[in-house]
């Protein structure tokens, strides 16, 4: 079914609970239903609802990104791809071109994979999830949205309507990078998103770092980011931040890499994304 409004979706979800699954780009949910990883009696296509399929940017409020907006809208957008480098980076590597035509950032978040590419980027960019439900709207910081692999904070009757991402002033820059064995079409072995704001003297005024695929949920590397405040943007300082980021990682060993390798990659990717983020901030 394809409801026309947010309230209709809430009503359907309230009635059918877990047996109804939302369909945005479908690139995760269709596979999961087909392979029996998730079950549903009904699939609710939310792409007829303006609030979840549209996006707009203004200098005061930043970007309001409908939950079902497909990836390509971000990296193909000349202004948004510059302002939100980390988001452009991540949306450009989620699956191939065919996937990016359909997959949405909102869906990537709701799917709550620890390795989701857009989540560390959203965390770094300080994004907030706007959730609609039976008792109205509420907001949750993206870093608090995932509660475990494939699990999130959405309660019965609730769904993700949009993401709010703060405006990017001058001197801001962000980047996302993941490590994969191939060059495309792969799941992050580790992913890192970094955001920085530079002070007028070129030192780092603010920073935020998100990590993926190193714990049951994507993480915020707070101490790593804090270590950079007031510092010069040097490789040494970035490497030190990488070391601090490792301290919160609790990776597993699986077919994509060993825990030891993942831990090592945290340092590498934090350093690399900080480098790119600063370069972007310097040229913004």
């Amino acid at each position: 079914m394809a409801p026309q409004s947010v309230s209709e979706v809430v009503a359907v979800l309230s009635e059918h609970g877990d047996r109804a699954k939302l369909l945005a780009g479908g690139t995760d949910i269709i596979v999961q239903l087909r392979e029996g990883l998730r079950e549903a009696d009904m699939v609710v296509d939310i792409k007829k609802i303006d609030a979840v399929t549209s996006f707009k940017y203004c200098d005061e409020n930043g970007l309001s990104l409908g939950a079902a907006v497909a990836c390509y809208n971000l990296y193909e957008h000349p202004q948004l791809s510059k302002l939100y480098g980390a988001l452009a980076d991540s949306t450009h590597i989620i699956g191939g071109w065919q996937i990016q035509s359909r997959a949405s950032v909102g869906g990537n978040l709701c799917n709550a994979s620890p390795a989701a590419d857009s989540i560390p980027a959203l965390i770094a960019l300080n994004a907030t999830a706007v959730i609609a439900g039976p008792s109205g709207e509420r907001s949750v910081a993206v870093e608090d949205f995932c509660t475990g692999p494939g699990r999130n904070v959405l309660e019965n009757g609730e769904f993700l309507v949009s993401l709010q991402i703060p405006a990017q002033g001058g001197n801001c820059g962000s980047a996302y990078e993941r490590f994969i064995p191939r060059n495309e079409m792969d799941i992050a072995v580790v992913g890192a998103g970094s955001w920085v704001k530079l002070a007028d003297d070129g030192t780092i005024a603010e920073a935020k770092i998100g990590l993926g695929a190193v714990a049951a949920t994507p993480l915020v590397a707070e101490a790593a980011a804090a270590s950079l405040i007031g510092k010069e943007p040097t490789e040494e300082n970035f490497a030190a931040a990488g070391e601090l980021a490792k301290q919160i990682a609790t990776p597993i060993s699986d077919m994509r890499g060993t825990d030891e390798y993942r831990m090592h990659l945290v340092g590498v990717l934090v350093k690399r994304t900080l480098t790119t983020a600063v370069e972007r901030a310097q040229s913004s």
């Binding site: 064995p181 191939r182 060059n183 495309e184 079409m185 792969d186 799941i187 699986d254 077919m255 994509r256």
Partner: peptide
Amino acid sequence: MANASFLDYRMPTMLD
């Protein structure tokens, strides 16, 4: 087998 899919078996893509 843990990786019985094209995603995780990782044959070269055009970009590799």
